[in-house]
Amino acid sequence: MIPTPPMIDVQELSVSFGNGASARQVVKNVSFSVAKGETLGIVGESGCGKSTVLRSLAGLDRHWNGRINLAGTDVDKVRTRDQMLLTQMVFQDPYGSLHPRHRISRVLTEPIRAMGLGKGWDKVDAALQQVGLPVSFADRFPHQLSGGQRQRVAIARALMLQPQIILLDEPTSALDVSVQAEVLNLLADLKDERQLTYVLVSHDLGVIAHMCDRVLVMKGGVFVDALSREDLYEGRTHNDYSRMLFEASAL
């Protein structure tokens, strides 16, 4: 489809927690790849391992085995500085993903400072504007913002280091339906603007259908179905489980 090498290439990724007899394999030998500029959705019920896949991609979970290749380089469990610059993540809960005692300006400059790229104050205004927030928000604390506004700040923060891959862990499930649409549209606009590659994890098929070029259905730690955008619109499924999932959500 696209001749360039995939942005994300995962081969035989498995993740297990615990050791010995109590070990539990949460993700079982999954392989997938995502092209540059593509949005891949992963759906499944709670506990199927979809968030674990995402956290392994991000480098937050270090219990994985297999091969993860990002932008042409194999990454290890401990990321180098350049590899960290490749991926950022937006979390599910906008109330928990911003430090409660950091002002918004501080939240947004922290990635730049932590990377040792200077102070970053001059980038705050542009960062707020690009996610549709007024510049005056820079002096506020997170508790002075609504959930949708916080999620916009979290998205702005994820973009501060200009990553090529954004990992979205149910970015709208904690928001009102009206705000959900705003945030999803913002994400779609930013993606077109910056040629971003998204991996979106959700259990909301409406969100997935709106955002994704391709969807993987996950169950019990393995992918049971892969659906294209056309499949989604026409309601085609290739597996009993994914049919059940789609019928249950009855779009």
Binding site: L60, F91, G96, S97, L98, R157, L161
Partner: peptide, 10 residues
């Protein structure tokens, strides 16, 4: 999550 996010930006 904010500590996880901070880990992600190094």
């Amino acid at each position: 999550d904010y500590v996880a996010a901070a880990r992600l930006y190094g």
